[in-house]
Design a binder for these strands. Structure first.
Lengths: 130, 130
DNA sequence: CCGTATCCCGCATGATACTG
DNA sequence: CAGTATCATGCGGGATACGG
């Protein structure tokens, strides 16, 4: 997905930035439209498929499946099938997924605290440009 | 870009999740391929256009321009043109951009600390699936 | 040196319909 | 209820060429 194409020519990175490529893979996950939303939502406890669907609102069945599969693959969530009828499938955060909530929360807090400034900057920029 | 289409039907969100839509706009920025990389890079001080280009490595001229414009619009970076010949343009972080580095650092730290676990989980998942 | 303008392609996402 | 399958599409992003 995010192909590691940085520094192909042996460019000069600050050592502190050396692992950017690896980090970018995670950042991509954080940036995608639904993953973070679902991780935060599952922080309150396990949820069923359609329960998540309703709570998120606006996500297609397909994308929910894909997103949950991705998170499961990354070791962020577990998928538990109860062989009842009708079927019951529960998704829950793993410890790894739980631990991700902390830095994501921090980012969310920052966003809430600064969204006004960003909006203002955008309006100012747009009027200056127009 | 990220259209606020959550909760259109008056669904039930935990109050703590109430501002997800707004936050998502910021998260999208964090998730895009180059923005965060550039913000972190500019943390070490102002840089010129092609200087950034070389340091990032693998970014097209087009995408660098677009990314920098976006960051400028969001109030994250300033663009300063020195009317010399040849032209010299410097990009620097604003205080707002500086403040973003903290939560992003946290996320980066988390990523570095857990990337092994993620990789392991992926391999395990893939072998289990195959 | 620092861009802008075009063209083009692939993937991410959505809509819809079907299944166990 | 919890998916899978298929089709359509918009946009992110690269390549290239040109301009001040």
């Amino acid at each position: 997905m995010v192909q590691g194409n940085m520094d192909v020519t042996g460019g000069q990175h600050d050592p502190a930035h050396g692992d950017c490529r690896k980090v970018s893979r995670i950042l991509a996950r954080v940036g995608d439209k639904w993953s973070v939303l679902i991780v935060m939502l599952l922080g309150d406890g396990p949820r069923r498929f359609n329960e998540i669907r309703r709570m998120v609102g606006g996500i297609s069945q397909r994308m929910l499946t894909l997103t949950l599969r991705g998170l499961e693959r990354d070791g962020m969530v577990t998928r538990t099938v109860y062989p009842t009828v009708p079927p019951r499938v529960e998704y829950a955060l793993t410890p790894l997924g739980q631990s991700l909530r902390e830095p994501v929360q921090a980012l969310g807090t920052w966003a809430l605290a600064n969204i006004d400034r960003v909006d203002a900057a955008q309006q100012e920029f747009d009027s200056r440009t127009a």
